[in-house]
Structure formats: structure tokens, C-alpha cells
Amino acid sequence: TIDDAFRAIERAIQAENEGRYREALKHFLDGGEMIVTAAEKEASQKVRNLLLHKGKEVLEWAEHLAEWILE
């Protein structure tokens, strides 16, 4: 659900702030994927587009974090 997705993102932010970057990455990926999944089930085109945009933002952040971890 969207609530689960945002809880995962909150955990990711907390982990990132505490320097637990790999854990943060996992939570960002989980949250982003949950948002995209919820968007695919959404009946309203406007809400679907907003959710897809937010999911994409979260997944892009996860990608940047992963690249930073690997440096």
C-alpha cells in the first residue's frame, strides 16, 4: 500500500541519516517499487501519473545512492 511505501521511505531516510547506507538503499528501493505497484492499480489517471512520478523519483534517488556506495 501507499502507507507501507511511505513507511519504507521514512525508514530509508532515518537509516541514511544514521549512516546505514545499504539499509537505506534497500528501504528506498522497497518504497519506490511499492509506489509504482500502487500506481499500476490506480483507477484515476491523474493519481496514477502522480504516483508514477513519485515512485520514479524515489527509485532514481536509490540509484544515485547505490552509485555513491560503490565509489
Rank of each mutant, 00 (worst) to 15 (best):
H64V: 07
E67V: 10
H27T: 03
R11H: 07
T1H: 07
K54Y: 15
E10A: 13
E63G: 07
A38C: 12
K56Y: 09
A5G: 05
E57W: 12
L50D: 04
G31T: 04
K26P: 00
T37H: 12
I13G: 01
N49H: 09
K41S: 09
E23H: 05
A24F: 04
A39P: 01
G31L: 14
F28V: 03
I9S: 00
I13W: 09
V58Y: 08
E42Q: 08
R7C: 08
I35A: 02
E40D: 09
F6E: 04
E40C: 15
N17C: 14
H64T: 08
A15D: 02
R22S: 10
E71D: 12
L50G: 04
D3P: 06
A15C: 12
E18A: 10
D4I: 08
G31A: 15
A43N: 10
L25E: 00
R7F: 05
R11W: 08
I35E: 02
A43E: 10
H64K: 14
V36F: 14
Y21K: 01
D3L: 14
W68G: 02
R48S: 03
Y21S: 00
L52K: 06
N17I: 13
G32A: 15
L59S: 03
E67H: 12
S44A: 07
L65E: 00
Q45T: 10
I35S: 02
A66G: 04
L70E: 12
H53C: 14
A24K: 01
D4A: 09
H64P: 00
E10S: 10
D30M: 15
E63S: 14
A12K: 00
E60R: 12
D4W: 08
F28C: 05
K54E: 01
E33Y: 14
G32I: 15
D3A: 14
A39S: 05
W68Q: 05
D4F: 05
K54F: 15
R11L: 13
E67Y: 11
E60F: 07
I69E: 01
Y21M: 05
I9F: 08
F28K: 00
Y21V: 04
A12P: 02
R20W: 04
D4G: 06
E60H: 13
E18L: 08
E67S: 10
N49Y: 07
W68V: 05
L59M: 10
W68K: 05
E60L: 13
W68D: 01
V58T: 01
Q14C: 10
K26V: 06
W61C: 08
A5N: 01
D4L: 12
A15E: 05
A24V: 03
L65Q: 00
I35K: 01
E40L: 15
A5M: 06
L70S: 10
M34H: 03
E18H: 06
E10L: 12
L50R: 11
A15K: 03
V36Q: 07
R48L: 06
G31K: 04
G31H: 04
H27V: 03
V36W: 07
A38T: 07
F28W: 15
D3T: 13
L51G: 01
Q45A: 11
D3W: 15
G32H: 15
M34N: 02
D30L: 15
E42P: 02
E63D: 07
G31Q: 05
W61Q: 03
E71L: 11
A43I: 13
I9R: 02
Q14I: 11
E23Q: 06
A24S: 03
A12E: 00
D3E: 13
A43L: 12
K26M: 08
G32Q: 07
V47K: 07
E67P: 01
I35L: 15
E33H: 15
L29F: 07
H64Q: 10
G31W: 10
E23R: 04
N17E: 08
S44R: 08
A8I: 13
A5H: 01
L51A: 01
T37A: 15
